[in-house]
């Protein structure tokens, strides 16, 4: 269970999150939707401790994330797929995937780590030949898949997806959505994805949360999304230029 209570975050005078509350039960796939700059990425970064919230508390399985004394153990529970992949240019694909496995307390031998990396690459539909290539040699879709393989390499309990289909063609986006759904279900992981791609929302989520003006305006099951009477959600789904969401 991931629980965010009254999270506030401002950058200078600009308030991004203004008392955000959200609960994601264990094993559930939550998608946070919202416009650009609405604070979706900031939310994920606050949970991971990449940036500190100004106010509010984040609980992971009932424990306050700020009280985590062993940062490595805390972060080992998470996997994250970054928007642009965030693969390390100087390392080969398998070294990227096995990055966590080659370091830390549960370090594996390079041979074992490579085997796991190849297995994870296979899981995301990439052949073992890709293992020795460098990220710059791969297409955007392949880089996303490598990023996904890296996110799941250490079998995390919680997986975050930051705009998983941005920059991909519709077919590749569909492939990534299917992979995400399959992997999350298969691993029984709790996941939070952030996106503005409604196809992605329908494909990967159990529940949806609509973030606007620093607060969750609506949350509910993905099946209830279209019939919900929340004006913010409806404007976002339909992409109507007029409504409570301003674009200025």
């Amino acid at each position: 269970m991931i629980e965010l209570r009254n999270i506030h975050k401002a950058f200078g005078k600009k308030e991004i999150l203004r008392g955000m509350n959200l609960s994601v039960p264990k094993g559930e796939s939550m998608v946070i939707i919202g416009g650009s700059g609405s604070g979706k990425s900031v939310t994920l970064k606050c949970i991971l401790g990449l940036i500190a919230q100004d106010k509010g508390e984040i609980f992971i399985e009932g424990k306050n994330a700020q009280d985590a004394t062993d940062r490595d153990a805390f972060l080992a529970r998470f996997g994250m797929l970054f928007q642009g992949g965030a693969l390390f240019d100087s390392m080969s694909v398998w070294q990227n995937v096995a990055f966590r496995l080659l370091r830390g307390t549960e370090k594996k031998t390079p041979l074992e780590a490579r085997e796991i990396a190849i297995e994870k690459l296979r899981r995301v539909g990439l052949s073992p030949d890709v293992a020795d290539q460098y990220p710059a040699e791969l297409s955007g879709g392949m880089q996303k898949r490598v990023g996904l393989a890296r996110a799941i390499a250490a079998d995390p309990e919680i997986i975050f997806f930051d705009e998983p289909t941005t920059g991909l063609d519709p077919i590749m986006a569909g492939v990534i959505n299917t992979l995400i759904r399959e992997i999350v279900v298969e691993m029984g992981a709790t996941s939070i994805a952030i996106t503005h791609d409604m196809t992605s929302v329908r494909a990967i989520s159990d529940k949806v949360a609509m973030l606007y003006d620093g607060e969750i305006k609506w949350t509910g099951a993905v099946g209830d999304m279209d019939t919900a009477d929340d004006p913010y959600l409806q404007q976002f789904i339909t992409g109507a230029p007029d409504g409570p969401i301003t674009t200025a």
């Binding site: 991971l48 990449l50 972060l75 994250m80 970054f82 642009g84 965030a86 693969l87 990055f99």
Partner: peptide, 12 residues
């Protein structure tokens, strides 16, 4: 390119 954030999430 968020590689530094990725390092943190990979416990480094």
């Amino acid at each position: 390119t968020e590689q530094i954030d990725a390092l943190v999430t990979l416990s480094s």
